[in-house]
Design a protein around this nucleic acid. Structure first.
Lengths: 137, 137
DNA sequence: AAACAAGATAGAGTTAACTCGAAGTCTATC
DNA sequence: GATAGACTTCGAGTTAACTCTATCTTGTTT
């Protein structure tokens, strides 16, 4: 089975070697084996694990919590429930984030229209006077 | 027209007074007026502006860029195009983030199923031996 | 064998976004 | 007018997640 160096993995996952070493230092990569001289050898499965780490990171999970998950993985079957619960919780979190982004997008869309109209009028004033009641004349 | 104190605004927007003062220090709140003794008086429109700031923040925009936007607002109609462009760009960014979250959610769902199966089997091994060919017997 | 790129560690530096402490001022109530 | 509580500024401290520097080792190439 062939392996990859740290810079190859960095390139493949669009990370820096600094970041990968930092992850290792933080205990996120206990599964990465070394040559007798200490050089990291990333297996295919290590890259898959890193993809899971990146996935968790993109849900906003802090590295220390990701480390908990990695520790559970090392602990074997006795932690299956924790790991399941964690992913269920992450799922809920991501769904909440998507809801949040939806609302954000609505406001942004609103602003896009606001500025489109203002640009066409050449001034923001078209919006400002909206709420002032104009007396019959 | 009535106004709000910094702690009232903090409570309403679920921020801390520290955060609001920090925003002010960073130039995000040039529109907030003060009493003669220097106490901030937040108008209704200031709270609306803060909601826009929070919206931009939730798109991942750094505070320094939000400040640019605030500065453009102070500069009046000559910056309408920049502001429009900014919101268009934010829109694209949020849409990209939603796409990203969708992919994340797919992997998470996958993992939820993975661990559900593993839990039912009592061991993760149900997945591990998948790829080993079992000879006819 | 000398050079050189790429690997390693340890630890310092950076950046963003707060978060807080100190010290003083305002304002409302007793 | 004194006390309490909320306000002010200034500047220091915190935290997360890198990011880099210095120094050394390894492995390949000329």
């Amino acid at each position: 089975m062939n392996t990859y160096t740290i810079s190859e993995v960095a390139k493949q996952l669009n990370l820096t070697v600094y970041t990968l070493r930092y992850y290792d230092k933080e205990g996120l990569l206990p599964f990465v084996e070394r040559t007798s001289s200490g050089i990291r050898m990333f297996k295919e499965s290590d890259i898959e694990a890193l993809k899971v780490i990146e996935c968790l990171k993109s849900t906003g999970m802090p590295i220390k919590e990701i480390k908990n998950f990695i520790d559970w993985c090392s602990d074997g079957d006795s932690t299956l429930q924790q790991r399941y619960d964690m992913f269920i919780e992450r799922k809920a979190s991501v769904e909440a984030q998507m809801e949040e982004l939806k609302k954000t997008l609505e406001l942004i869309d609103h602003k896009c229209n606001y500025y489109k109209t203002a640009l066409e009028a050449g001034t923001e004033d078209v919006h400002k006077s909206n709420k002032i009641e104009i007396p019959h004349s």
